[in-house]
Design a protein around this nucleic acid. Structure first.
Lengths: 348, 348
DNA sequence: TATCGTTACATTATCGTTAATGTGGTATTA
DNA sequence: TAATACCACATTAACGATAATGTAACGATA
């Protein structure tokens, strides 16, 4: 009769059986509770080590009601902006013994809601949400489910939830002023198609800076280049459209571009590099995010930076407060920004 | 006496109480098991919907022994290489109803082992591991714990586990040949400090291509620029060292650089861009990974590409086989590669 | 000495499911 | 008509831990 040595995973029960105490005693001993004698505690811990005990976090979570998981819902990790922030968030979370579960919404509200549902089903202790345009339902769902959450980077509305953002208006102001100080007097505000929540703040900063320097309304323009992240099949068509727009801008005498974010600025640069009509030297370009500081790209872009670490730390901090039952009014943390000049402004 | 309406989450029990059936019946009805009458099934499902039932995945996992979680252990998401692959893996996993848990090892063997331990504690159904230099212990741990896993991108040794890689030798061969065909006859193999497992294969491809074109040993060299991902504080010092190395190469007449991967090539480009002694035009540069295809960077780099989707799909496929109990010999999938020329080869 | 508190454990309940069985009633078959 | 087979549910156990109590032994205190 062959005995199957199907070695299953070691449980508290196994340790209890071997040491001759109850399961509870083992549990307490391993957690260094004070009601176990030093000698017993040592014996049990030694046995646990010898037997190769690895606690079952699932069982622990079910009983204790805490998973120590923080879900992070963001657009997608192919975007370095999210990649960098994910790393920062993981660091901050790990420091407080939380595990991060990254979920990618592809900026699709429906998928985002599905992910929210999953975060709830998996009993995440809290969620960090990078809202996109259609996050209203997601937010309501979290509120209904009493799931602690923090909004990061954008807030669909004021005061609805804890949020960590940076000074959007100030950033756009700094960027625009940098263009102006670099000698550009006809400025375009360039962004990807959809209006994001932060867009209005950035526009305001752009406007303020123009006003402050006496740039007339006629010397400002707003260019929305639409769709495609440049990787899709219709990428070339999209790029041609963008190139045509840029050529048009140049012909009208516009020479300064404030681009919504670094990723979009890369697309602009790529379009310029592949065009016969326009080139990098035709425009001063400044954008927001300062991704190069974290990536060491060979793409010198003047950009407005902020601290990724501060964003991560504050997100975790606010979230933990809620997880631990805080019910005070929603808090909004606004982080400072700074200009990093790398020459793309075309200062002469 | 105030009644606290502390609305807790709806459970099967609540639904059972309301519909007047047993918990088991509810469970079966919601999973469309065949032993529940159509009418009862409808009633229960309707009640569940009305009450806003969200299953508790933790309880499910504990009972069923399946978490439907796949842990992915990789270097870090700030590296677009990993970001892109994470997205691809999430897509492939989601298709099979798995949730991905990304864990970043920072290429630190100790931290990696810790993450492995956590994957085990959280009862992941399987793990996708991007091994770094010290992954031996991690691999042994997974084997000991009978945790299904797949190695991706690199394999510390042949035949020890399922693996999904691409044709490293072929990639290096193609890259090197591309340099040669672009008119370069003195070639350097450039890579970051540490020897990675895939390094020997790439070196072999480099050697083969040189041999095939009659490049003498004296016209080949191996440059290892060390440490720093370009973002640390000693970044400038590191860059100066790199710049000196490149200047040295130039002076010795080397004009073709085969760089280990795109990310490292960016660092090289950045060093070149910031140097007075050397510039991009001094070298033809070809590397591996073809990240631009997924990122739309304005950094035209000749690179060897492979399909991120294929890597993800195959990883999930192999992993699922193990999860479902397959115990056949370890399988290794080698994906084909192709050259994408973007001009950095300096073809004249 | 009776009461009390403390120490060091054990016992029992519970988290929310799913799996394995149990069961009464009706329809089918021999 | 008795045995048998479903059908549609109910009951019970289990997953592996933690939380809430329970308790025997002992020393200290009134």
């Amino acid at each position: 009769m062959m005995q199957t040595t199907e070695k299953k995973r070691v449980t508290l029960q196994d340790i209890a059986a071997r040491t001759g105490v109850s399961v509870n005693t083992v549990s307490h001993a391993l957690r260094n509770k004070s009601d176990i004698s030093a000698e017993t505690c040592r014996r049990i811990q030694e046995a646990a080590r010898e037997m190769g005990y690895t606690g079952n976090q699932i069982a622990r979570s079910l009983r204790s009601g805490r998973t120590h998981i923080i879900a992070v819902i963001l657009g997608g990790l192919s975007n370095p902006f999210y990649g960098i922030l994910s790393d920062a968030i993981q660091d901050a979370a790990a420091f407080k013994r939380y595990t991060v579960m990254v979920m990618c919404s592809r900026d699709d509200p429906e998928l985002e809601l599905q992910l929210a549902e999953e975060a709830i089903a998996r009993c995440a202790d809290g969620v960090i949400l990078f809202p996109s345009q259609g996050s209203q339902k997601t937010i309501e769902r979290f509120q209904e489910a009493k799931m602690p959450f923090v909004l990061v980077a954008r807030t669909p509305a004021e005061g609805i939830a804890d949020a960590v953002v940076w000074d959007e208006t100030g950033a756009a102001y700094l960027a625009t002023r940098h263009l102006i100080e670099s000698g550009h007097r006809k400025l375009a505000y360039v962004s990807d198609n959809d209006v994001i929540y932060s867009s209005e703040h950035r526009m305001e900063g752009f406007r303020k800076a123009c006003d402050a320097s006496g740039i007339p309304e006629s010397d400002r323009c707003y260019l929305k280049f639409s769709g495609s992240n440049g990787t899709s099949e219709n990428g070339s068509q999209w790029m041609e459209t963008l190139q045509a727009s840029l050529t048009d801008l140049k012909q009208k005498g516009f020479n300064g571009l404030f681009v919504f974010c670094d990723v979009e600025a890369w697309h602009i640069l790529q379009a310029l590099d592949h065009s016969d009509q326009v080139s990098r030297s035709d425009f001063g370009i400044v954008s927001i995010d300062n991704l190069e500081s974290a990536l060491a790209f060979p793409v010198p872009l003047c950009s407005i930076g902020y601290s990724f670490k501060e964003i991560a730390d504050n997100s975790i901090r606010l979230l933990r407060k809620r997880i631990h039952g805080d019910t005070s009014a929603p808090q909004k943390v606004v982080l400072p920004v700074e200009l990093v000049c790398r020459g793309s402004c075309g200062r002469s």
